[in-house]
């Protein structure tokens, strides 16, 4: 006995799961209509100061523009704390209102949702949370984009987690992404790791705006001279390999005063020039 197939039965599919998924994507697009540019900060390698750099970029841009920061590093969120963002988050008519941090920067991060010191964990009525983790994390990123009432912003910086997946996941959700900025430190190990992520981005046709080399030397707090900190010149090497500009080389400054105002200012100008 044969039966009619799904497509032969022409009545309505009430669930319309495909339409529901499309509606989720449309919510992202609709929400970001009031955001001028979305720029992601990424690195294949952890510990290169990506979140610090994101927060310093946000602060520098906030002096002249409306800026938001989405912390997409769900498992190891740090940007909210760096910018002084606090909860609780208000549920308004148009969505979840972001925390307004230092310099008026709109911030959203899992750091605002988790109990102090608690790791990221998901409920699963079916057990096996590892099976669902990927789906839930992509779903969370989608909701951070679509359900936070970002309002009118000139620039939304997205601080991506280390690795290659975050870039392509974000680009899938935000095809209008202005591009990514890759952060590296000078070492050859960092170059190799960041290059892998940049190849993944290039293969997915994600625009690469440029490279920033962080901890590019050590600035002496006494005489302000910059001395080598790591061997290598990964920033320039990556810029050459991928045919993109080296947007800046930022020295490590040991007293928490940021990567040096002059170097930061020129880097911000380079970033904005590429993102426009």
């Amino acid at each position: 006995m044969t039966y009619r197939t799904y497509h032969q039965v022409t009545g309505e599919d009430r669930s319309q799961l495909g339409a529901q998924v499309k509606a989720q994507r449309d919510r992202v697009t609709e929400r970001l209509q009031t955001v001028g540019r979305v720029v992601a900060v990424m690195s294949g390698k952890g510990g290169v100061g990506k979140s610090y750099l994101t927060s310093w970029l946000a602060r520098a841009v906030a002096s002249t523009s409306r800026v938001g920061v989405l912390d997409a590093d769900l498992r190891s969120p740090t940007v909210a704390r760096l910018l002084g963002a606090r909860g609780p988050l208000r549920v308004g008519e148009s969505g979840i209102e972001p925390s307004i941090a230092a310099d008026g920067i709109a911030v959203f991060s899992t750091d605002l949702l988790l109990d102090e010191g608690r790791p990221l964990q998901w409920r699963s009525s079916a057990g096996d949370p590892a099976v669902w983790r990927g789906l839930l994390e992509i779903g969370a990123l989608r909701e951070f984009l679509s359900d936070v009432a970002w309002g009118s912003l000139d620039l939304l910086l997205v601080d991506l987690p280390p690795g290659t997946d975050g870039v392509t996941d974000l680009y899938d959700l935000v095809p209008s992404l202005a591009g990514i900025i890759a952060v590296t430190i000078p070492s050859d190990e960092a170059r190799r790791s960041v290059a892998r992520s940049l190849r993944a981005a290039r293969d997915a046709d994600v625009p690469i705006l440029g490279v920033i080399e962080n901890m590019s030397g050590y600035r002496c707090p006494g005489c302000a001279s910059v001395q080598p900190l790591f061997d290598g010149a990964a920033g320039q090497a990556l810029a050459d390999e991928f045919g993109v500009p080296l947007l800046g080389r930022l020295p490590f400054c040991p007293h928490g005063d940021g990567p040096g105002q002059e170097a930061l200012a020129s880097t911000v100008q380079a970033v904005l020039g590429r993102a426009s």
Binding site: R90, L113, R123, G139, F144
Partner: peptide, 19 residues
């Protein structure tokens, strides 16, 4: 708003306040 996250994330009780 943030339906999936609020239903599935093991988060703090006071993360959100309603309007």
């Amino acid at each position: 708003p943030m339906e999936l996250v609020r239903q599935t994330l093991e988060g703090r009780d006071d993360a959100f306040v309603d309007d």
